[in-house]
Design a protein around this nucleic acid. Structure first.
Ligand SMILES: [Mn+2]
Ligand SMILES: [Mn+2]
Ligand SMILES: [Zn+2]
Ligand SMILES: [Zn+2]
Lengths: 128, 128
DNA sequence: ATGCCGAATGATAATCACTATCACTATCAT
DNA sequence: ATGATAGTGATAGTGATTATCATTCGGCAT
């Protein structure tokens, strides 16, 4: 079974003290910054282990995974294709409709991913 | 500008004559099967070019891209985590709510991706 | 305290989908 | 024909992630 080692605790603390959506490299770099020595493979394994235990959340973007705190209510994401900023939103009506769609087909939902791509307010304002 | 070469026409025909969600390898293999010789890089480039021209649709799954016919109305996907089967659904109310969420934030939507993961009817029935 | 065992670590090799490079070819306009 | 432009295909490279493997750590039974 999974252990909460010093390295994993350091990763968990790092993620828990911000609202960022972290990628593995970011975590490794930030830990190195504050003097925690940890191999990149250990970061990947730690993130996977913590997510599996529900101590952090993971979201799958196009190419890479991001991790965030697990102590927030469920939400989905708006991703700015210009600056990369990620906003969060919660829309219970959408979730309910997803359940309806699945129920109609005899499909048992285990999870979902809703990503809205486009321009955030700031980037939209600065368009040519 | 983009040309509709013989290779790209072959890719397009292959995709248009089925309802599958193709990955690049599948297309390359199927073409080889029917005697069309085409390099894998050309398949990747052809798929990207056809999608850019709107002649086929692309969806981004966790790790790899899939391509499908473009002559269907917009829809999202239910993905069986057991057998890999992909079902389609269309739910205008969800699309409308997405627009509402974005509008509230001054976010300009350029695209979205909604994936529902879980067990299809068949796989749900055969669970232990 | 000592030894054992499963899990974790970290350096590094490997994987996998995809993209870049590059020499060559096909197409089209003059 | 000539040149410009885009495409092709073999292959090398990329980047995120995972596998390998020798070494180390953390309990726990003796
Ligand atoms: Mn989030
Ligand atoms: Mn589809
Ligand atoms: Zn932005
Ligand atoms: Zn299934």
């Amino acid at each position: 079974m999974q252990k909460l080692t010093a390295q994993r605790q350091a990763i968990l603390d790092m993620i828990n003290r911000s609202d960022k959506h972290w990628e593995a490299d970011d975590v490794a770099y930030a830990l190195k910054e504050e003097g925690v020595q940890i191999g990149i493979a250990t970061v990947y394994r730690g993130l996977a282990a913590l997510a599996e235990q529900g101590l952090i959340e993971s979201i799958q973007l196009a190419d890479k995974k991001r991790y965030e705190r697990a102590d927030k209510a469920h939400h989905d994401h708006l991703i700015c294709t210009d600056c990369g900023n990620i906003e969060e939103f919660c829309e219970p009506e959408i979730e309910a409709l997803q359940d309806k769609v699945a129920a109609e087909r005899g499909f048992k939902i285990e999870g979902h991913q809703l990503l809205l791509f486009g321009l955030c307010k700031t980037c939209k304002a600065g368009e040519s």
